[in-house]
Design a protein around this nucleic acid. Structure first.
Lengths: 316, 316
DNA sequence: TCAAAAGTGTTATCCTTACACCCATGT
DNA sequence: ACATGGGTGTAAGGATAACACTTTTGA
């Protein structure tokens, strides 16, 4: 174990999936005109990985970052810096409100379903699933030589994309992207395999690609958000100071990519006791005016993460 | 953005939390006579981080690694290699069965509650919580100057350690360790702060320390295992080919650190349909002989990760 | 007056929890 | 016979999902 061998030296990079919800749309901060996620170096001076991320994101966007959590660390074989060293990318998820004080060129907020059109089920099942994705994947499944592999692929397709009586699971966005990648149906896969696509986008699934593996990191971030809103009060970080229940519901729907059952959503909010009324009402909307709410500051104490699901014996 | 600045270069290390359950005890593979977790370099030759981990763990233990997942990436300020570079440690969790084919000296399996005695509630609440931990933490809470900070600390203590009517949550092992660290009640914290403890272990909480931040990484691994057994069939990887329901229950209890309600546990297993009877019976135990089970190979397809918990609207 | 959106009540169903009890074997 | 552990039945309680319905505003 030679501790300082040169082949053990790598370049470290911090990649951020910064999420906001604006006017009912889920948004992500991008660089290079939407083709990459903001990425910055991890430097000796940084106290920790998270501190490094906060430092340069706040430098770029000029407003403080609220909730931050680590996503995943990647070291893909084809990520190599100019000196031939491997690049280790540490992905982070950050939740904020959108700010227009971004000073840097080519940096801006993008709707995230531009990258994953098949993930937006808010107006029912997207037609491109039946039209483009499932046929493309079926072709890929049929190309396997081994018949066992073929049925295995078909099962996996049905399971991940909610076909053949499997339910759609919005949390499986990463698995879906990886399946499309494996099947060669996204430009990033074609690019990597080295075959220059001749006629452009033939057979490929619509959805804007990104550089390197950034669309995969974005999928990881979206998956984490979608899973997290179900058991942690993270909407805190994404909403303005005051909001109506419908605005909150619309924001959750934007993130989950699905519509919610309004009466049950309201009841859920009521019984969780995370909100309090401000007393004021929203104005300027059609229909009956809605009450305004804010998140309760005093309930911060992590909302008793019950989390059982194993049949524990009662302590005597 | 100078891409190849020297302050951007780091050393990458892979750290493994390898878990097994043997004779009803939860075990972890350690090096340096139990003072460290196995750690190996990430090298240029490795296809990916996970491939690198698999490669050297299998070289060390001489048996293939089953389930592996990434835990977390750390870059603590005090981890610096001989050339003054920062060390980035990528932690991995691996689940296996214990093997005695470990060839390397000072490497072996340890019971994990030796490192976290307060986490073992299988025989009721460990007395050292009332005797040592809560008094120690109370002192620390009282040392804060700001009265708000004092009450905040007390709330956090009660919440994390399940005092004052908060329930004990076995998943919060990392938060508990970090709280003890902050309060200076574990040797690692004393060591870092530079105060050499004069009289030895006075006031410190019992529990074997580890080098660097390895005990923290171990806590992260245990937390992940405890959370995971509740919603994924990971016991697959830890059990022998055939086992009784009681053996399975004992293994889960070892990991969770709590006793389970036997009749309900059995029912849960039955309705999940993850198991099938082998037809054989266990022999050589007192009492009525138990049926032997095995995991069903054909049900691998991820057991329909239902995962709702938001009031979705029904798709028409 | 009517459309649009806010908001409430109620029931069927399922899952979890807890308690009570019977079964099969060795000593 | 009885201790020990294996195994089953069932009822109470809580959470969720689905349906039907009332209220309040602006055009």
């Amino acid at each position: 174990m030679t501790a300082f061998a040169p082949d053990r030296v790598v370049t470290a990079e911090l990649v951020a999936v910064l999420v906001a919800v604006t006017r009912g749309q889920p948004r992500v901060l991008t660089t290079q005109c939407g083709q990459a996620l903001p990425a910055g170096p991890f430097q000796q001076a940084h106290r920790s990985l998270q501190a490094g991320l906060r430092a340069w994101v706040e430098a770029q966007t000029h407003h403080p970052l609220g909730y931050v959590e680590q996503l995943y660390t990647f070291a893909d074989q084809d990520r190599i810096d100019g000196a031939g060293r491997r690049v280790v990318s540490v992905g982070y998820l950050g939740l904020t409100r959108e700010s227009d004080s971004i000073a840097v060129d080519n940096v801006g907020w993008q709707d995230w379903y531009g990258y994953f059109p098949w993930e937006d089920w808010r107006n029912g099942i997207p037609s491109l699933i039946e039209r483009v994705i499932l046929p493309g994947l079926a072709t890929w499944a049929g190309q396997a030589d081994d018949p066992n592999e073929r049925t295995h692929r078909r099962q996996r397709i049905a399971f991940t994309f909610g076909a053949e009586d499997f339910p759609w699971n919005e949390d499986m966005i990463l698995q879906r992207y990886e399946l499309l990648f494996e099947a060669g149906l996204v430009p990033e896969a074609v690019r990597r395999s080295g075959h220059p696509q001749p006629g452009g986008a033939e057979g490929l699934v619509p959805g804007q690609p990104m550089n390197h593996d950034h669309r995969r990191i974005l999928a990881t971030g979206i998956a984490r958000v979608r899973a997290k809103i179900k058991y942690r009060p993270v909407m805190f970080e994404l909403m303005p100071a005051e909001f109506t229940l419908t605005q909150l519901q619309t924001a959750v729907e934007a993130l989950a990519g699905r519509e919610l059952h309004t009466p049950n959503f309201r009841r859920l909010m009521a019984q969780q006791a995370l909100l309090e009324e401000t007393g004021a009402m929203a104005t300027g909307t059609p229909g009956r005016p809605a009450r305004l709410y804010r998140f309760r500051r005093d309930v911060r104490l992590e909302r008793a993460i019950a989390g059982t699901s194993l049949p524990f014996a009662r302590q005597p």
